[in-house]
Design a protein around this nucleic acid. Sequence first.
DNA 1: GTATCCAAATACATTGTTGTATTTAAATAC
DNA 2: GTATTTAAATACAACAATGTATTTGGATAC
Lengths: 215, 215
Amino acid sequence: MLWVVVACAMPRKRLTREESREQTRLRLLDAAAAVIVKKGLAGTSVEDIAGHAGYTRGAFYSNFKSKTDLFIELLKSDHAQVQQDLQQLLEADISNEDLQKQLAQFYGQCYRDHNSYVLWAEARLHAVRDAKFRQRMNTLCLEKRDMIASFITQFNQRMAQPPLPAPAPDLALAMMALIDGMLYFNMSMPGEMSDTATGTVLSTIFTATFFGPQA
Amino acid sequence: MLWVVVACAMPRKRLTREESREQTRLRLLDAAAAVIVKKGLAGTSVEDIAGHAGYTRGAFYSNFKSKTDLFIELLKSDHAQVQQDLQQLLEADISNEDLQKQLAQFYGQCYRDHNSYVLWAEARLHAVRDAKFRQRMNTLCLEKRDMIASFITQFNQRMAQPPLPAPAPDLALAMMALIDGMLYFNMSMPGEMSDTATGTVLSTIFTATFFGPQA
DNA sequence: GTATCCAAATACATTGTTGTATTTAAATAC
DNA sequence: GTATTTAAATACAACAATGTATTTGGATAC
């Protein structure tokens, strides 16, 4: 009886089956991300995930084949987001901006937050051990590399800089490695490398690499 | 009876208690490194380690307080080795060598092999989750940073190069991040980044950073 | 030799995890 | 309304891992 009143007071839409299922899926994915960041992929049980999302294991197995299955979905969704961000950056008008700003944006764009970076760190270790998984991840990484390579080429042309010191795809990998290294460092040694130091170093190296022999 | 003969044939020294204990310890450490690289820290059970070393769990708990305890010993021993290598490089006469060679050596020195790198990747993730552990690791990393900073300063002076574009410790962190990023990449995407590409890129960036505005 | 010591093995009790099989209740279709 | 469907809960059986308590047998001391 009270139920009716409440239901009227806050028009909490009665979900259709499909909506409800989708909601459960998303809640499980979110919960998984949180718990995996906190306890690690291997250290996280299916029960942990379901529990944290407010369900039982039954809901989990009803929605995902396995923990690995869910994990891959998690990565794919994050990758798609990053790709989209990069695409946007690529399409934006960059010729009027200065390098510093670009780099800051680029850097921030690569991985949006600490959590997603930790997830990718987990993924890499998993890739070392699972060839199948590694292949899938490589595909994603190479996709990103190509997008960055395209960004570099375009940037180089628009700025009418000296020829690149190496093929764009190679430079792209190097830049990814560099940025990864920075984030990786900050992940396990937060605060050790000041933001300004990071920025300075990145821009120093970027400038030297892309703008070549002029101070 | 045959035993006596065999014992004479190969003078396999009868171990003292202490020697025997030390041997067990070392075997457990070696086994742990191998298994942890293969299955991950969390995915490795104490039983796995003991079994792989040819013992039972009893031997393990008789020698180590816990898995984490053993893991830290593993890292410390690896770190000590790297520090020693760096020290040697620092003391060596470098003024006659060319940059390329130095870099190659430096690069190879940082982490001696794939396995030890994977162990450190595990360690970093562990550090994200365990503040106590993170502090310990920071100490080790800063030790390394200082040694590299010292290397950079010395190198810069001996080569009579232009002033460094940033404080040596900051540059050291950046170099560590860069090299880490490269190795990290190669770890999960082996073969994607060719050795020559890696070398070229590293030397390009290093040259640009340390030798500044001249091609 | 006998007594003792201690490194490692074994036994044990407990707890956590897995995946499947079955049940339930709410949403749809009629 | 009644029947059907199905998302999620619950029950279950098998197994893996933990840490401690106890035992065993080869070193050491005498």
